[in-house]
Design a protein around this nucleic acid. Sequence first.
DNA 1: AAGACGGGGAA
DNA 2: TTCCCAGTCTT
Length: 361
Amino acid sequence: MSYDYGEIVPYLLTWFDYNARILAWRDNPKPYYVWVSEIMLQQTRVEAVKGYFDRFIKALPNIQALAEVEEDKLLKLWEGLGYYNRARNLQKAAQIVVRDYAGELPGDYHMLLSLPGIGEYTAGAIASIAFQKPVPAIDGNVLRVMKRIAGSTDDITRLSVKKELWTDIERIIPKDRPGDFNQSLMELGAMVCVPNGKPDCEHCPVVHICKAFHEDTIALIPNKPAKKPRKKEERTILVLEYQDKYAIRRRKQNGLLAGLWEFPGVEMKLNLKELKRELTSQGILAAEIQPIGDAKHIFSHVEWHMTGYHIKMKELPNNSPYLDSVIWAGRNEILSDYSIPNAYETFRKNILFNEENLNIK
DNA sequence: AAGACGGGGAA
DNA sequence: TTCCCAGTCTT
């Protein structure tokens, strides 16, 4: 069912004028800045993005620089932000923009949509915010805010629900300030009509037309089915040290944490005795084996339960599965050159603080 | 239509 | 713990 949102636009714009947060990409909405920020903001909170955005723009100030940067440097700039394919797709798109659009990001919704990493939401956001095109930009905030105003308990994971909201917004989006209107809905969702906990309805500019408020159904909206439980995976992480260097290897180019660096290990939990037997059978002569604790890392769809060992080696064996394709890197190199995901942070810290104290991050 | 894909903040 | 975030891509 489509819904008539009436005179919602001026209330939102006025509220936005007085309450919009000051953000670097909002302060200077160059297409490149809006683009980079929107990619970083996918499934990621504003607070988490701020620092990454500033550092990224400083390192790669324009599309040309992004198109040409080495992948390891790109991933290092993205380290800890998650969803690493966003970084790779961003660069792929930059290369297309350089090749096909003379280095200028196009402002047309469908051209944007054709670029890697830019879906319906992001295409709408860039087109409206950076190019003043009257196109909707529907993210989780917009869905939540609009469905609460309409008092609708529709399952928002259904495609038809988002499509219908798209046409409802197309009808009311102001031609003179489409980007501000889209942002006002998202800002309201982030600051007032929040997803977890009680929304701050006393300070909502559209509370007088909000059906969920008047019908007391805010807790029921947005309506979405429960998620499935995560899988659990056991792992043993080996911090192998040889002559003040540490073994790291590159993960494969697809799947989880694709292309990032990690410590070698096995996909099962080994106790000290099992580990010793394993190392012996692999011809690894260990001078010293030190358990360095357990760690758990929760991804959206899987949990890693890890146990770590610090292993000082006497010599390098000729061939061993654990050392196949590893490189040996010093502490400072690991810190500055190799993107290691946060899942390994417990064990990376063990290296970084192994000797004298070092100032990290 | 469902699953893969990170990490962290808040309740 | 659970939820979910300025979502997109693959299967």
